[in-house]
Amino acid sequence: MKAITTIPFSELHVEMQLPPLTKPPVTREQLVQYAQASGDLNPLHTDDAFAKSIGMDGVIAHGMLIMGFLGQYVQELAGTESVVSNFNMRFGAMTKPGDAITCSGAVKQLTETDGQGIAELELIAEKAPGERVGTGTATLTCKIEND
């Protein structure tokens, strides 16, 4: 779970699979904490009785918490050399307490302009193999020093 290996920007190549990050299972306490920290106080995420009243089995995680996990992953991939200049996610299947989310990614494209290296990444967040709770892309920008 702890920090993934940082890969030097210069070692990235197209189609490269990046080391995944598996988060600890989502807990109800975490949903309460995230609700308070993010300001998203929809009881769908924190109150089982409310969730059941609208036809769900119980509370579900905030989609933005899942994006937060992918954000952690992307920021770790950026390491010390790169900045995250663009990051997006489409929301997929629901995440429930007990689900452990795995973030994975691959390098889709690499370009270089004006002394900057740009890596386009494809990202997936899954609660089990093939069960996607989110998919997205990120752009990492890295200054290239020519010497």
Binding site: Q33, A37, G68, Q75, V83
Partner: peptide, 24 residues
């Protein structure tokens, strides 16, 4: 609080010495 709720412990969000040596 936000980083803690996610469980994101990257020092980039709180460690000035670490962060000074990054692209940020």
């Amino acid at each position: 609080r936000f980083a803690q709720a996610i469980g994101d412990e990257n020092p980039l969000y709180f460690d000035e010495t670490y962060a000074a040596d990054t692209a940020y």
